[in-house]
């Protein structure tokens, strides 16, 4: 089973007291190519994303790259609507995520899109097994069945030995492997990863990256990885998108971007990856 394509069109996220009132002004300034800082001073509203449009191919390992504050994490959170866009549409396969009501959105998150966090987001005093079983338990699966499924995923990632350990006793690399196991346990076809290797040391980072690539060869999920590290992007990606100032500057296969970078920013990022 291969993951679905993900399509974001015209996504705008607007932070501030009255987004609806500020919207026409923001839109006008955005069309003239104003910077986020300029829009912030003029309107008192901060656009997290500005008319971002991006199509991610089905079943591929996509890396969204950008500097801090570029809006890349916001973009990821629009896919499972942890952030609700002010304008625009998010389509995951056949599902229009932006149109889901509360119950449907909850069901979508339980079955269709799992997530991995930079600082793991695990329950520290619970065991690795309980953490991995967590998504199934809140979806209403009985404990025994949830634990069996969790044990199977842990075994697949080679984590059998730590299943009973409380998560807080594990190393950062092990914690993130548990975080990955938790995201795999629901069999969601979409995997959202917010700087998943950011808190790991360089050697562990490489190991977990390789594990992810190995898993992805069998799973063929649609994986979206957020990173600010160009090396990481080139190591992992089947498909790269570069985000800057709340907009998607360029997207495509890594060598396409290398051959024809859209602007100096993309060129500089890719050049940094080769040094």
């Amino acid at each position: 089973m291969s993951g679905p394509p993900i399509s974001l069109s015209g996504i705008t996220v607007l932070y501030g007291p009255k987004p609806a009132a500020a919207w026409p002004r923001v839109q006008a300034m955005a069309r003239e190519g104003a910077s986020i800082a300029a829009i912030r001073t003029a309107t008192g509203h901060v656009p997290g994303l500005l008319d971002a449009t991006l199509d991610l191919p089905a079943g591929s390992l996509c890396v969204v790259m950008g500097l801090s504050g570029s809006g890349k994490s916001t973009l990821l959170r629009c896919i499972n609507r942890l952030v609700t866009p002010f304008a625009g549409r998010v389509q995951v396969g056949e599902v229009d995520v932006t149109a889901l009501d509360v119950a449907a959105l909850r069901a979508f998150r339980r079955t269709s899109a799992a997530m991995v966090f930079q600082h793991f987001g695990l329950l520290p005093r619970r065991s690795a097994l309980e953490n991995v079983a967590f998504p199934l338990r809140i979806a209403g699966k009985p404990p025994a069945a949830a634990h069996d499924a969790a044990r199977a995923v842990l075994a697949r990632l080679g984590l059998d030995a730590v299943a009973g350990e409380p998560v807080e006793a594990l190393s950062a690399g092990m914690k993130q492997r548990v975080g990955l196991a938790r995201a795999l346990v629901t069999d969601a076809p979409v995997l959202l990863m917010d700087e998943p290797f950011g808190a790991l040391d360089p050697i562990t980072r490489r190991a977990v990256q390789d594990e992810l690539k190995g898993l992805q060869r069998d799973l063929r999920k649609t994986v979206v990885v957020i990173t600010h590290d160009p090396h990481e992007a080139l190591r992992l990606a089947d498909f790269i998108a570069v985000v800057r100032e709340g907009r998607v500057v360029q997207s495509g296969a890594p060598d396409a971007l290398m051959r024809a970078p859209a602007d100096d920013h993309v060129a500089a990022l890719l050049a940094a990856a080769q040094t």
Binding site: L82, L105, R110, A114, M115, F117, L122, A139, L192
Partner: peptide
């Protein structure tokens, strides 16, 4: 806390 939301 965000993870709890993300998993529905």
């Amino acid at each position: 806390v965000e993870a709890a939301d993300a998993f529905g």
